[in-house]
Every structure is written in structure tokens, then in C-alpha cells.
């Protein structure tokens, strides 16, 4: 289930215009694979999926914390990206564009879910403390049991749980910075945020994570 395989990007092995074999395709830089995909080469589409399915899925999974949902959102991300490859601007890194769409898909879902969620603090129409208590949804540690056993195992470490408690925008920044190894500038481009904001978000995220981990160490 787990892997640490990084996307490969090497020197150009085959001139464009000729369809390289699968092994050569794996050695081409992203820009060339995108160019081949734009020529209608299905193998190039599949190569882009192969390179980025794990990073994208990992990002989305850590954002939404639901494996099945993350599978669907990852699928949506790739469908959007591959169906609109002609809109990709080659002056940017392909991976930045891909992560931008993946992040937007995940954030959109989280926002929609927030709108659909019933308040856990009790009904806004409750007039007495008893009514508030009666209409409140109890959220205890047992709510984690909503995650199935595998998810709990995968996302159950202290750092994963601390990440889950971060604000979504902090979560995207910190995951792109330290799990995907992106620079501050790339994150700013990917998330359409000013560089200073990215630095602030990452600083605050680290601070919150440090505080969360202090509890586990005590």
C-alpha cells in the first residue's frame, strides 16, 4: 500500500513525433509526455497517471481522510487534467498544475461537506441550555471508528492525526512542502497564494503540529 516512489524525469530519449516505447516514455520529462498526450497517445496519458497517482492520491487522502472518497476525487482530478491538457501552460511545471487542480478538488469537496454538515454545537434554534444539549451531536474519540480499520492504521500515527486537525489551507501547504518536497515559490504558484502567505501558513502549521506532538510525547 505504501510507497516512496518519486516521479521520474530524465533526459529526452526520443524525438517528438515518434511514439516511444513504454520504457522510453518513462524516461521522458513531463513536458514531452504532455506533448505526446496532446497528440492523442493513450500511453502518454497513462504515463502521466502512473507518475503522479501516488502523490496526488496521498495529498487528497490526507486532505479528506476517507479512502473511497479520495479515490473518487483523485479520479476526478486526473479526468479534469487529462481532458483539458490543451489548457496547460508549459512555462509552469506540470506537477504544479496537477497539484493545483487536486488541491482545488479536495478543498471544494471539504467546503461542500462543511455546508452539508449539521452543526455539532446544537441547533441554532434552541433557546435553552437543555435544548442545546439535546440537539447537539456528541463527538467523542469513538468517532474515529467511522474510519475503517485500514484507514485508521494508515492515518493513525500521531503526526497524521495532527495534520488532520490543521486548517485545510495549512494542510495543503505543509503537505506540499514536506511530503512532496516543493519549494515555497512552487507552493505559492500551485495554490495561487502570495509567497508571504505560504510562509506564514507553513510556519503556523509547523507550530500547531509541534504543539500537537508535544502532547503525545508527554
Amino acid at each position: 500500500m505504501l510507497s516512496r516512489a518519486a516521479p521520474r524525469a530524465g533526459p529526452r530519449a526520443t524525438p517528438l513525433g515518434q511514439m516511444p516505447h513504454a520504457l522510453d516514455l518513462a524516461n521522458l520529462p513531463d513536458a514531452d509526455v504532455v506533448a505526446l498526450a496532446l497528440e492523442g497517445r493513450e500511453a502518454a496519458h497513462r504515463e502521466l497517471i502512473r507518475r503522479y497517482e501516488r502523490p496526488v492520491f496521498s495529498l487528497v487522502f490526507r486532505m479528506v481522510r476517507d479512502r473511497e472518497l479520495a479515490e473518487d476525487l483523485t479520479q476526478d482530478t486526473f479526468i479534469k487534467v487529462l481532458s483539458h491538457l490543451d489548457r496547460y501552460r508549459s512555462e509552469f511545471k506540470f506537477s504544479s498544475w496537477l497539484f493545483k487542480i487536486a488541491n482545488n478538488v479536495a478543498i471544494d469537496h471539504l467546503r461542500r461537506r462543511q455546508l452539508d454538515t449539521v452543526s455539532m454545537d446544537g441547533s441554532p434554534h434552541a433557546t435553552t441550555p437543555d435544548a442545546v444539549m439535546a440537539s447537539a451531536i456528541e463527538l467523542s474519540d469513538s468517532s474515529e471508528s467511522a474510519l475503517d480499520e485500514m484507514e485508521a492504521k494508515e492515518l493513525g500515527s500521531a503526526i497524521e492525526q495532527a495534520i488532520a486537525k490543521l486548517r485545510p489551507e495549512y494542510r495543503s501547504c505543509i503537505l506540499l512542502r514536506h511530503v512532496e518536497g516543493r519549494s515555497y515559490e512552487e507552493i505559492a504558484t500551485t495554490l495561487d497564494l502570495p509567497l508571504g502567505t505560504v510562509k506564514t501558513y507553513i510556519h503556523r502549521a509547523r507550530h500547531e503540529l509541534r504543539r500537537a506532538l508535544e502532547h503525545t510525547r508527554e
Binding site: L2, F57, S58, I163, I174, H178
Partner: peptide
Amino acid sequence: VVVDALEALPHFAP
């Protein structure tokens, strides 16, 4: 410690 923990996180396979 935090950064090391983050950087040790694995990728998940879909």
C-alpha cells in the same frame, strides 16, 4: 522533530 516526521510520511497507493 516535526519536519522529520512529516518528511518520513509515505505515499499511499490508490
